[in-house]
Amino acid sequence: MAEQVALSRTQVCGILREELFQGDAFHQSDTHIFIIMGASGDLAKKKIYPTIWWLFRDGLLPENTFIVGYARSRLTVADIRKQSEPFFKATPEEKLKLEDFFARNSYVAGQYDDAASYQRLNSHMNALHLGSQANRLFYLALPPTVYEAVTKNIHESCMSQIGWNRIIVEKPFGRDLQSSDRLSNHISSLFREDQIYRIDHYLGKEMVQNLMVLRFANRIFGPIWNRDNIACVILTFKEPFGTEGRGGYFDEFGIIRDVMQNHLLQMLCLVAMEKPASTNSDDVRDEKVKVLKCISEVQANNVVLGQYVGNPDGEGEATKGYLDDPTVPRGSTTATFAAVVLYVENERWDGVPFILRCGKALNERKAEVRLQFHDVAGDIFHQQCKRNELVIRVQPNEAVYTKMMTKKPGMFFNPEESELDLTYGNRYKNVKLPDAYERLILDVFCGSQMHFVRSDELREAWRIFTPLLHQIELEKPKPIPYIYGSRGPTEADELMKRVGFQYEGTYKWVNP
């Protein structure tokens, strides 16, 4: 592979701008107003304001973009700056750019259920340069409990009458099928589907988006991507930290609602779906819905739930269990780990287990898709061969690698495990991989909904998990304890083995 010439960040961002501006969906010269509902909250200060700053800094926003914060707290732009700027990672050389960014910011205080507050917000936006005809993007960085009041008031008082209007809704989209349907029906009564952007930030990850290209742009994968060759698929999300004093919020939802029903299920769809007619948003989402419709409700015998306990040999936070978090209700049975087996009941995947695993306070930070292939028929190497695996590593250190057998150097035919490896950090030294939120917010500006969740996708996802969630809430089974920093409950490994996964433990990928 030829040595790549190092590029400056300015040059890299210039390439990104060229890609972005050559499309006809990006209205570079139009006025846009980006409204952050819930501007005083954690999500706004840690993710949304920093993301908008990065896009502005790199010249990736339309030229005439204004940012308006809205929340109940009586704040000023200076207050917003004070709480969000520490997350910007701005350099001293960017000081003038930073001043320009905050000059485009404003803030309006108001209630979430008060019509007069929204009329005041609308008047404020109209007073901005060309504000009355601007395109408006409303980001709901809010708890779902206020979605209905907020969307109703936005629709009645704050819509642009000339430009387009788009609304970005953060997960969780309800707690179960019934609450999700209620919320979807409410929002759909106010906005068209092409105006609604239900954001799952995992769909903005580079390697998640790469799944489609790997599958449908490489001839070698087509013939082997089926039940005849693939023994099982494992989708993993692991965090090495616990709730760390923020367990009160987590306890309301648990690990299945927080990660599995959305992030992991979306990745499953991209692995299992048929080739779409095109890369058009609805063509892709149509195929994802077909996959979900082929999955039956989760069966309790295919589920393992766990909850982390303190590690007596650990240090600091590792010595504390979930129930030691003062914000967690006493005696909570909320799971911090889950392993679930699903089956896609169609011709391509009949009988292939899709194993979804996620948890907190585990032994490493990792998100990946792992396809394990069947054993080689007619073994001539005296059971020395391990199964081939194709691994798409989402985070950290984005990579695609194939675990395969090669001859060990020497005189004899002794096979050993090795890999074919594409590590993004080595291959793409001159490429700026956008943060997931950067990519998705740019998608909203461009009107691309491919990486957002459609209402029928959402409904099918909740259909699969709601009976299990209701059973857990009714019966309150005690989750299996696992030690902070471990791989999780051993019962999860036993479940995976029972459905056909072979864990060798003899080879570990190392970032080159």
Rank of each mutant, 00 (worst) to 15 (best):
I187S: 05
R246N: 03
G163M: 11
R227P: 06
D42H: 01
Y70I: 07
D30Y: 15
V68W: 03
T76D: 13
K46V: 01
W164K: 07
S40V: 02
R74Q: 14
L96K: 06
I167L: 11
F88L: 14
A134F: 09
G204Q: 01
L190R: 13
L140N: 05
Q22S: 14
H186A: 13
A149L: 13
L20E: 12
G110Y: 00
V208S: 05
E93D: 13
I196A: 02
L137T: 10
E99M: 08
Q119H: 12
G204H: 01
K47W: 06
H155E: 12
W53T: 02
R72P: 02
D251W: 01
N105T: 11
F66S: 08
F21Y: 14
I230D: 05
E148Q: 13
R72T: 00
Q209V: 06
N229E: 06
I33C: 10
D113H: 13
K171W: 04
L203G: 03
R57K: 13
D194A: 11
R9M: 15
G242C: 03
E193M: 00
I154E: 03
C13G: 12
F21K: 15
I162G: 11
T243D: 00
A134Y: 10
Y139D: 05
Y107D: 03
L7E: 15
S184V: 13
Q11W: 08
Q83D: 12
F88T: 05
Q195A: 11
R72S: 00
R81H: 07
L142S: 00
L61Y: 05
Q83M: 12
A116D: 15
L128V: 11
S40T: 12
F237Q: 07
L128Y: 09
D181M: 10
Q111E: 13
G110P: 04
P50Y: 00
A127W: 10
K152I: 12
V208K: 03
F221H: 08
S84Q: 10
N210K: 03
S157G: 14
F56L: 04
E244V: 13
F241T: 05
G204E: 02
M212V: 03
R182E: 15
V213N: 05
Q178R: 13
G59W: 01
I162N: 13
M212P: 05
L61D: 00
R219N: 08
R192E: 09
E239N: 00
I48F: 03
D200L: 03
A116W: 12
D113T: 10
N185Q: 14
H124R: 14
V146G: 02
W53A: 00
F253N: 10
T76M: 10
F138C: 06
E19P: 15
M37F: 12
L20K: 08
E19A: 15
T243C: 13
M212F: 07
F191L: 09
H124I: 12
H201N: 03
F56E: 00
N229T: 06
E63A: 08
G23E: 15
P92H: 14
L98V: 14
V150T: 10
I196D: 00
S106V: 11
V150R: 03
L16W: 09
Y49D: 02
E85H: 06
D114G: 14
Y249T: 02
S73D: 00
S123A: 14
F101K: 03
G14E: 15
P172M: 01
Y197D: 00
N126K: 11
S123H: 15
Y249E: 03
A71V: 01
H129T: 14
E93N: 14
Y112R: 01
E239P: 03
K82V: 14
G69M: 05
G222H: 10
T76H: 10
F216T: 02
F191E: 03
Y197N: 05
T243W: 02
R182H: 09
N210I: 00
S106M: 09
R17K: 15
H186M: 10
R166D: 01
R215V: 02
D200T: 05
K171E: 03
R57Y: 00
V68Y: 05
N210L: 04
G247S: 06
A115E: 14
D30C: 14
T31F: 09
D100M: 11
V12E: 09
R227W: 05
A149R: 14
T91Q: 14
I220P: 03
L177C: 08
N165A: 11
D30V: 09
S40W: 04
N64Q: 12
I15P: 06
L16F: 15
G41H: 06
L20V: 12
I199Y: 04
V146R: 06
I33L: 10
V146D: 02
F34W: 07
F101V: 00
Y70F: 10
E85P: 03
A44M: 01
N185A: 11
Q11F: 15
F87I: 07
D251Y: 02
I196P: 03
D100Q: 15
T51D: 04
E239C: 05
F221L: 12
N126Q: 12
V213R: 02
S160V: 10
T91V: 15
F237E: 01
R57E: 03
L137A: 11
S123N: 15
N229S: 09
P86K: 09
Y197K: 00
D42K: 02
Q83N: 10
H32R: 12
G247L: 05
P143N: 08
L61P: 00
Y139V: 05
A116G: 12
T31Q: 09
P144M: 02
D58H: 14
